[in-house]
Design a protein around this nucleic acid. Sequence first.
DNA 1: CTGTTAGCGCCTTCAT
DNA 2: ATGAAGGCGCTAACAG
Lengths: 337, 337
Amino acid sequence: MASKITAPTIDDVARQAGVSISTVSRVLNRTVPVSDEIVAKVQAAMRDLRYTPRAAARTLATARTNTLGLVLAELVGDFFSPLLHGIESVAVQNGYDLLISTAGRRGPHNQLPHSFDKHNADGLLIFAGCLNDDGVRDIHSLGVPMVLLHQMPPDNLPIPCVTIENKAATRALVEHLIVRHQRTRILLLTGEPGNEDGYWREMGYREALERYNLPTRAELIAPGHFDRRIAQATMERILRERISFDAVFTGDDEAAVGVYAALRAASLRIPEDVAVVGFDDQSLAQVLQPALTTVHVPIKQVGIQATHSLIQLLQGKQPEALTLLPTTMILRSSCGC
Amino acid sequence: MASKITAPTIDDVARQAGVSISTVSRVLNRTVPVSDEIVAKVQAAMRDLRYTPRAAARTLATARTNTLGLVLAELVGDFFSPLLHGIESVAVQNGYDLLISTAGRRGPHNQLPHSFDKHNADGLLIFAGCLNDDGVRDIHSLGVPMVLLHQMPPDNLPIPCVTIENKAATRALVEHLIVRHQRTRILLLTGEPGNEDGYWREMGYREALERYNLPTRAELIAPGHFDRRIAQATMERILRERISFDAVFTGDDEAAVGVYAALRAASLRIPEDVAVVGFDDQSLAQVLQPALTTVHVPIKQVGIQATHSLIQLLQGKQPEALTLLPTTMILRSSCGC
DNA sequence: CTGTTAGCGCCTTCAT
DNA sequence: ATGAAGGCGCTAACAG
């Protein structure tokens, strides 16, 4: 395209080194022993010519792209960086490139972004919220290797899934509020409908209340959507309606930001008037004043594990069907500790 | 690989539709008019067979990958998400995929990550801190279309560069501290050596002091490296050494987090005892207490502009050599306003 | 408007 | 240990 002088090909290298292209290919791929002498000559020729093999040609010949496709919902937030970081580290370590794509923000779709058919990547890493069950089924039926992150496969399809322990951690957190800090009217800010993390966190919340014979009041369950603005709006409404509460489980840390803002605007003190706890332990959590009590999520590990599983799949091995990464409660000051 | 049954090719579609492969290719690429009737037949066949063209084959035939390579230093921080978001939006809009790669954290390298030769991507987006001057020269001499982000090309090479206005904004910010808030001993936390943003911010700082005949004291210039931990360590040292100061320009918002922590630990009040200002306007800035006065950086725009420039380059057009995006001061409470 | 054919650059049997 | 030749799937002239 840009340069008129066509880049050197394997033929150029072969000619320059006085060998056949198969030999060049062999030193390139170390697939078969080649005499040291020739290896040296070939490598010299490659260096001279500044030769680099054309990825497309190899792919066409081998039917492997050496590329992992990453499908994400939205490239936002504190969450996404460590995840990608984890994925990237094991991908490069295993010689894979990373092709990135976002599914757009309109919620789960039933198709991949059009560029992502099975021929651009050897396998797919699919984050929750990108593909609905139909979409997952479809890709799977095409025989595309894939692993799901924070989302269970439909119909018990044998698709590896990597996610985190949500329910028990939430229950422990809410019980902490009840037992340690004598809170009885605990507000729950939910995730978006269909979000599995949100679903299990809600289950954990309900279990904790039940366990201590506290009523589950409908007016104490409201949308937070793991979003600071939505959480703030919800809190403002609840304050306006004078619904009484003495604690709030914000669903995630991002939502906690909105909760803090609303509470501060209403001159309510944290944790004296209202205890606040989040989930994720994003880097934000330590910055908030008072520092946020939350649950640590090993998000980088999620990326690492998922990528490992995918690579195992590509190697014909059988990865763990479900990897449930442990989470741990982080007590800071916003709960009253 | 995974599926034994080889995926359908253009030949299968042609056979099924009763036409030649060129015709199929034509309806695929809309390069030449095809009769409606045949278009319909071909599309039906494609749908039946669940056909998707092999990207590698097209690439080999056309010498185009339809992929943009993104070279980043580290996938961390608030900074990176909006940048990637901007890049991604214009990439997909123009039919490009995104291949991501990190250069590792060991500072600028003189080579691309090995997977990133010119044959994997049509062009490269290179973020500051990934490639040193030698590296940039090298890639450029290969004729690879590229644009630099937050980094100027060496030797006045004609490589488009997209960056932001650092110096004037910093000067205005520091002058604000001087004029509005009567600060005279203003600490500067610098970026890493070689970081261009940091360099220009330091220049702005110096100009502001000069302009108001304030001395530039060596002990008031110390490393922050745009990193909260390093900034915090530096602040702790400065407090320990009882160096006197009444304000600090933290270099960026991330460093401001460390500064806040150190000042709080020393029971110094912001802004009464020490005024603090940052740079970037990351989402953190509003979360900090007191809310951080800073400079807004249109980081998503940087991504958008850079990608536009790269695409222009790929289209043979001549993009702006240097795009300097404007920044604006955001007055919040940490400066005393 | 449609079909035929020659590559694109590399890997991979198959010989040697 | 090395060379020769076919083919991966698609596009792009070139005919018709």
